[in-house]
Design a protein around this nucleic acid. Sequence first.
DNA 1: CCTTATGAGTTTACTTTTTCAACTCAGGCC
DNA 2: GGCCTGAGTTGAAAAAGTAAACTCATAAGG
Lengths: 163, 163
Amino acid sequence: METRRIDPVNCSVARALSVVGERWSLLIVREALDGARRFGEFHSRLGIARNLLATRLETLVTAGVMRRVPYQEPGDRQRFAYELTEQGRALRPTLVALLEWGDTYLADPQGPSVIVRHRPVDDASSCDEPVKVVLECAAGHSHLAPEDVCRTPGPGARFMESS
Amino acid sequence: METRRIDPVNCSVARALSVVGERWSLLIVREALDGARRFGEFHSRLGIARNLLATRLETLVTAGVMRRVPYQEPGDRQRFAYELTEQGRALRPTLVALLEWGDTYLADPQGPSVIVRHRPVDDASSCDEPVKVVLECAAGHSHLAPEDVCRTPGPGARFMESS
DNA sequence: CCTTATGAGTTTACTTTTTCAACTCAGGCC
DNA sequence: GGCCTGAGTTGAAAAAGTAAACTCATAAGG
């Protein structure tokens, strides 16, 4: 009997990981979400090797995750900083999901070291409650368990034959 | 002036990535969520080198993400398969988040190749609508934008000094 | 009993990444 | 000119990844 399976290589997870799946990439994005902007900030916060940091930043910039922007401090020459694009900020849910998973299964005995809170940039309506990531379907069913969902072929699916 | 920052190394994101951040690890989990169980299935679906697959599976088993279970097909000797533990299945939101990000920013021109749907194992109440990952705070505010959240120190936080 | 087949790995040789440390480069300041 | 700083670059060594051939246990066929 022949079954048809979605080709696992033609998949957005694989494509996403080809951009942010390299060692350090997601940690660089995390630090950027937390306010890091300059080469030296990333370097000293993460302890990553300087040449790797340079190539990672370049990769993230060409992938459209970050942007290289000139800045100049008074009485200093022009330098470059790195900031997230909208595409880069859109990785927040991924990082929150990883954080939550790490907190649940690999926790520090003291408890989580970081709590993500609902605190908008314009602090006006500061709610400050902890934030979680939840799965929700288009019909409005929310808080779906991992078992309640499955993968189905989409319009761009390629298939593999298997016996 | 001295500012205090959360130590970026003592963080659940970093710990999570130390388990599932190696090349192939998340793709192995993805295939397992999609039903792969046997060494050869992972190998042929992903095209990963056999020795790497062996060490990755071992790492995932010792980390508690997967379990090595014996199985025996009729008229065949006993072999071993690999299945996700609850801890492994809990990576579903992370993978959905990555999938969504890839679909949005690195899409195949044909559209997404995979759509995650609300389809429980007991197909009774099959809703089948596409599933998305959303950020939601404990006060019930849902669909938070990446800008609406920030990282704050938790009970296990360590701090770094910086000038 | 001997040969072949199969799935699940292991070994080995080779290539690519990552790491670490030292070095360069372009201003600004004394 | 000499020194300092941030932002990289260079180069050598270590670690990780790849590909293909090989092993191992058992089953099935002759």
